[in-house]
Amino acid sequence: MQAEKITEQPSYYRHLEQMSVKDIVKHINEEDKKVAQAVEKVLPQVENLIEATVKKLEKGGRLFYLGAGTSGRLGVLDASECPPTYGVPASLVVGLMAGGDEALRFGIEDAEDDPEGGWRDLQEYNISVNDMVIGIAASGTTPYVWGALKHCREQGIETGCIVCNPNSIVAKHADYPIEVIVGPEFVTGSTRMKSGTAQKMVLNMISTAVMIRRGRVYDNRMVHMQISNDKLVDRGTKMLMEKTGIMDYEEARGLLLEFGSVQSAVEKITK
């Protein structure tokens, strides 16, 4: 079946340059409302990918995100937020993007056209069958992504993907494909909009659910978060007081800073 380029179809709206700001933001909001509904339709696929990823991490594996442009940046963002939020090493969730770190700030658009580039980047991390690789590509056609997934599957490495077109080549090379069909963008082809929002929503689900299942959340609290600024020290101190019954703020703060996380402090105090 041929891939359908829904992400490239014309916007439902014409003559955007003639719209008032009021109408622009109104119509963008109308389109954004469709994103959560599109994500809801693929929740079973998201669940399957999460369950498979958890099994990999339980066996000592890692999670890799791979993308280009906006998709790549979203993967790098999600990966980079795991250590401070959940206290895991930066090597556990890794975000890679075509063009490397420089492409995070500057467009290096042709880097995505190399079908061997993604696989080369993964090899620098000694990728193995213990790991999970998730390709992120709104179009579902990015060579940097599908080339890497193809090589992974040839080597017995499990793969997933987040795309916004049906029947794409990226999804073809994914063991756990997620196709979030959000429809044409408000600005034709600008997949940083609805497509990017959908990808961010799914990435939030993946990393959050994986970390919860790996024991990095207790109740609804980030008990392993890195204590890296005044706001987080204050949050952690109050969490520690709540969990242990310590009434003195400065005492709880001192213990938190001594042991480095809420969970570590609780374990030392209650053992």
Rank of each mutant, 00 (worst) to 15 (best):
Q2M: 12
E4Q: 14
I6P: 01
E8I: 02
R14P: 00
H15F: 10
L16G: 04
Q18M: 11
V21Q: 13
K26M: 02
H27D: 14
H27S: 13
I28Y: 04
N29G: 15
K34C: 02
A38N: 07
A38E: 09
K41V: 03
P44Q: 07
P44S: 07
P44L: 08
V46K: 00
E47R: 15
N48L: 13
E51L: 15
E51I: 14
A52Y: 02
K56M: 05
K56T: 05
L57T: 07
L57G: 06
E58D: 13
R62Y: 02
Y65A: 03
Y65P: 01
T70Y: 10
T70C: 10
T70R: 10
G72C: 09
R73F: 07
R73W: 04
L74D: 07
G75F: 06
D78N: 13
S80Q: 10
P83E: 01
T85Q: 08
Y86S: 02
A90P: 08
A90W: 10
A98I: 14
A98R: 13
G100Y: 09
E102Y: 15
E102M: 15
L104M: 15
L104E: 08
R105Q: 14
E109T: 11
D110H: 12
A111P: 05
E112H: 11
W119F: 09
W119E: 01
R120Y: 10
D121F: 06
L122C: 13
Q123I: 11
Y125V: 07
Y125T: 05
N130P: 00
D131Y: 04
V133W: 00
I134F: 05
A137T: 03
G140H: 05
P143V: 06
Y144R: 02
W146C: 00
K150N: 13
C152N: 05
C152G: 09
R153N: 12
Q155A: 15
Q155F: 11
G156I: 12
I162P: 02
V163A: 07
V163D: 02
C164F: 06
S168H: 02
A171P: 00
A171Q: 00
K172E: 14
H173D: 03
D175V: 02
Y176S: 04
E179S: 12
V180N: 00
G183Q: 09
G183Y: 07
P184K: 10
V187S: 14
V187H: 10
V187C: 12
S190N: 07
R192G: 08
K194D: 10
K194F: 12
S195R: 05
Q199D: 05
K200V: 03
K200L: 03
V202S: 04
I206G: 00
V210D: 06
I212D: 04
R213C: 10
G215Y: 05
Y218S: 13
D219W: 01
N220R: 14
N220E: 11
V223H: 01
V223R: 00
V223K: 01
Q226T: 15
I227P: 07
N229P: 10
K231L: 08
L232V: 08
T237V: 08
E242G: 03
T244F: 10
M247Y: 05
G254D: 08
L255Q: 02
F259D: 06
S261V: 09
V262I: 14
Q263Y: 11
K268M: 04
T270L: 15
K271V: 06
